[in-house]
Structure formats: C-alpha cells, structure tokens
Write a protein that binds this DNA or RNA. Structure first.
Lengths: 215, 215
DNA sequence: ACACGAAATTGAACGGCGTTCAAATTTTTA
DNA sequence: TAAAAATTTGAACGCCGTTCAATTTCGTGT
C-alpha cells in the first residue's frame, strides 16, 4: 500500500539506522548472519533502498568496521592508566588485555574486522586506514619511553601489535587450544615481556625517572 | 545423455578429484570463487554428487585446508637447515621466511586457512588439530636449544608463531602498509630477534657448544 | 539371455543471497 | 492544478548450498 513514503528519513538517518541494524544483526547472529535483505527489513525498508546509501554490502560492512575501530580505540584509551609513562611494560600489558577483552566480548564484530575486507581487491580507503592508525598509535605512545626514534617506534609498535593480534586470532577466531590451555592474556603477557626485554637490550631506555626529590 | 555412469570412479577417486579441483579453483579465482557447482563441473559431475563424498561445502574446504597444512609443513621442513641446532635464531628466521613465502606465493590457499573454519560453531576435528600441531612442532624443535622444559617450549613456540602469523595477516590478508613500508620478513625478523633476546635473558640457554677441541 | 535389485548419479526444486532497475508513488515546484 | 523531481518498491537475474525423488547403469542369480 504505502509506497515511497518520501521524507520519512533523510539519507543520513537512513545510513545511521542501517548501520545500527547491521551492528545488532552481526552481534546477534554472528558475522555470517548479515544480509542486505535482513538489514533492510530490520529498519522497515527494502534491500534496494540500501543501495541508495551504500555502494554495496561490502561498503556497509566497512562502515560497520569503522565504527568498531572507533569503539575499540575508545576502550583501549579508557583502559590506559594515566601514569602509563612510568611503566611502559605494564601499560602495554593493560592495553593488550583490553584488546583481548574486546575481542572476547564483541567477538562477532571484532571478527568482522578480519573477514570481509580481506576478500576485496584494492587497498583500504584512507579514512579507514586513519582509524586503524589511531589504534596503533596508542601502542606507539605506550612504547615511546623505550624507543625514542619515531619511525622506529612505529615499526616496533606495529610488530608487537601484530603479534598480539595473531594470538587473538589463534585463540578466539580459530578456537585453538594448542598451547596447553594457557589463555590469550597469558600468551600476550609472555609475548610482550620477552619482546620488550629484547627491545631494551638493543635500545637502552631513555633514563630512569630522576631519583632526587627536586623538580 | 550419458547418465549415471556408475563405476567410472570410486568414492575415493571422486574425493581426490574434487579436492584437486577445489584447490585449483581456489588458487585461480581466490577463496571466494569456490562453489559446489563449480567444483562439480570441473570434474564432470553435478553438485549433488559432492554430497555423497563430503558432508557439505565447509567439510570440503576443511579437507583442502588439511592438504594445505600438509604442504606447508613439508615446505617448512624442507627450508629448515640441517644444522639448525647450532643457531636457533637463524633457524627460526628461516622458518618464518619460509612461512611468509608460502603465504605470499599461495595466498588464496593460505588465506583459506583463516576464512572458512572460523565461522563454524564447534571445535576443529582431531585430525585437523594434529596437522596444525605438526606445523607448530617445527617451531618448537627449533626453539628447543633455548627452552629445555618441554611444555614451556610448546608455549613459547605457540606465542612466537602466533606473532609471525599476525604479521602475515596484517601484511597479506589485510594489505596494511602501516609500518612505513617494511616487509613482512623485516617485521618477523624484528619480532623473532627481540623475542628471543627476552627468552634467553630469562632462561639462559643450555650451554654454548664446548670450546675445547676434545670430545 | 534375461530379469531384478542395488548402486550411482542426476536434475529439478527450495529458499536465500547481492544487485539492478523500470515502475509506482509521493513531494516539490511552477 | 499540472508537470517535474525525488523517493521507494518489487520483481527480476543469476548465483549460492542443500536435498531428494527419479532415472540410469551395473552386478548378480537363475
């Protein structure tokens, strides 16, 4: 009956509603339970309508992933202790635990970060790479007391975080229990501690905070 | 015309042919270009026939992944220098480079290891976990000179390899160039060197090979 | 030589998918 | 009020995984 009820929702409202619905759907039914028809039905529209607002389903998923990265960044930032600079190892461990916690709590959405994008041909769009960079930069700043040179700090942070990510993938995505039952947290603790030992062995840290009470 | 040419191929022949075809298809068109109808057509059968030999498509993919793990194990084993025990760091780096090389050469099949299985509910079947364990055990033996305690060596190997895997995921699957253009090899070298420095710092290695000429 | 049951394979069908687009409807504008 | 523009639909296309009655072929006993 009621066809084409124009003006009900602006384009931006539509976008927001669709992304909300997609998030809920993915969280509820897992990453595979997401389809254009389902998302559209959840917001009272038809599949075709989504194509006025998104290029295609992959685009929609990419937008959801963008939101996920924002949320992840916020969580990690909130978890960072304010006195992080005093004990970088502790800060990195806290960061890693927060990341693992997010991956375990929001498994479908976290998993989606690695499922949909991979298949496409080209590179990730710039805005998406920026969001990714923000997450990595948290690790970078936590590492800063250990690695003064900025590009080197970038490299070290990337490597370390890729390692934490790999541990999460094995434990959560592939549900592998190959390590004799140790948790992802224990594994990442081990990675971080050993890796940092190597880092400081090669690059002596700045200097211990001044011992005297003055200044 | 020629319907139901029974006896042409035994069940096991059918299995083998289907797996071969699936491998080729995946390698040619990427992991997404695999479908029951295509696989069946490639071996001159119909989609329905595959269901006499496999539980479903996920099962077929799991079998292909099993083959991939076998091939990967063979490659890594072949890459291991025979004198690996003399220089474990070198051995691990060689192993990591071989792994990265496989991931880069056989990207679709390697990628499939992380794409299809994750979605399912249950745990991986035992035979599959065994194949995985074989790959990990190569890392484990390379590490052995550094970590004597066997369960600890398992844990260390898992953590280190998860890290290498994470680097590959970032560089190859997600095509991320966030680290200022350093290659996966450079990143994994960094991971391994720093990590091993930490390992030997905490656990002094067995003993340097005897210096004296005797014995 | 022939028939008959068992084995093997098909092909159509079901429901769902992403995507496109002419048509239908509503709103805006003139 | 009539024409133009904007909005949304719903049907269609070709694909997908999966199932299963029907069909064809084979092996066997007589």
């Amino acid at each position: 009956m009621a066809l084409a009820r124009r003006g009900k929702h602006s384009r931006d409202e539509l976008r927001r509603m669709a992304l909300d619905a997609a998030e809920s759907l993915a969280a509820a039914e897992g990453c595979g339970g997401l389809s254009a028809r389902k998302v559209a039905a959840a917001i009272g529209y038809t599949a075709g309508t989504l194509y006025l607002v998104f290029e295609n389903l992959d685009d929609l998923v990419l937008q959801v992933n963008g939101r996920t990265l924002d949320e992840l960044h916020a969580r990690l930032e909130a978890a960072m202790p304010p006195n992080a600079r005093n004990d970088p190892e502790k800060a990195l461990i806290v960061l890693a635990h927060a990341y693992i916690g997010y991956a375990e709590t929001e498994t479908p959405r976290w998993s989606m970060l690695f499922e949909y994008i991979a298949g496409k041909g080209g590179t990730l769009p710039e805005w998406y790479r920026h969001k990714l960079g923000r997450v990595f930069s948290l690790v970078e700043t936590a590492l800063r007391p250990f690695v003064h040179d900025e590009p080197e700090a970038r490299r070290v942070a990337r490597v370390l975080w890729a390692g934490v990510q790999g541990i999460c993938t094995l434990k959560i995505r592939l549900r592998m229990d190959l390590a004799g039952g140790q948790s992802a947290e224990e594994m990442s603790d081990m990675l971080i501690k050993n890796f940092l030992l190597g880092v400081v062995a090669l690059r002596p840290p700045v200097q211990p905070p001044p011992r005297s009470g003055s200044s």
